[in-house]
Amino acid sequence: MPPLSMARYWGGMLGFIIQRLLQSVGVMLAMSALVFIGVYAIGNPIDVLIAPDATQDIRAEVIRRYGLDLPLWQQYFAFLGRLLTGDFGRSLVFDIPVLELVMQRLPATLELALAAVLIGAFIGIPLGIYAGYRPHAVSSRAIMAVSVLGFSVPTFWVGLLLILTFAVNLGWLPAGDRGPTVEVFGIGWSFLTLEGLSYLALPALNLSLFKLAMMIRLARAGTREIMLTDTVKFARAAGLSELTILRRHVLRLISIPLVTVFGLEFASTLAFAVVTETIFSWPGVGKLIIDSITSLDRPVMVAYLVLVAFFFVVINLIVDLSYALLDPRLRRGRAA
């Protein structure tokens, strides 16, 4: 973007960003209350934590230690207060701070989800644009068939097929687990080494299939629509090549729905990659939440759900901001 409109853009965006941040805080508060109450209503963690033959004194002591004897609202506010200082409490099962527990697992899910949406976008968008540009070509029909499969075939089944093909029969890629990681900023990442990537490949591919299908559909529909407009005719009349028209005009014009879906898919994959993580024994947060639900590990469940809400809020904020970046017509109205 040229410098002049850039300055105007950021000037106008400031009010919008502040307004959206306040909204986000509201959403987070509502979410934390809902989650806390919802989780509290499920079962009694004491039954899981304490051996059935423990004495009444030990029982009372444990209940007091975890603050479970206090009224619900006091527990909530205590929880909220700790939350604001970055303290998500201690896991009832692992007896370590929840934040530490989640942070051990989060990078694994983060890189898995990001790899999946990036594969989906970088392969899906060009394929979709091509299919929209030549809607009647045989290759376009093949692309659409892939997209239909991506939508309709269940993820777990594809995951099993991938393992069977690439891990068991061909033996090219590992079937599960995360393999070695490289420490950067004190966090272990897989994508930095070739071996790490080989562990990441299958689960990421598995997760990306649905996103790929979605991106193909969106890009195709958008391209078909844009190709019929006078903008494209005018660009052709000016002598622009078809590739330039697709890259500079069409891609920009169809980008808003693509960015929206990219954001939503990224957030929901971060939160709910459970099935794939289970199939590939990927040590991410998806597995953690399933385990903590089974063991009624309340602080972990609550922290996880609040974290998920936080992801959605942040990613949606970024998506909203990028709208204004992508479409100058939205800038004035939004910022006013």
């Binding site: 006078d230 903008t231 014009l253 100058p328």
Partner: peptide, 15 residues
């Protein structure tokens, strides 16, 4: 070539 509706021919998202 120049077209009928300049609002439709110019790309709204490019300067």
């Amino acid at each position: 070539m120049v077209f009928q509706d300049p609002a439709a021919t110019l790309n709204p998202v490019l300067t």
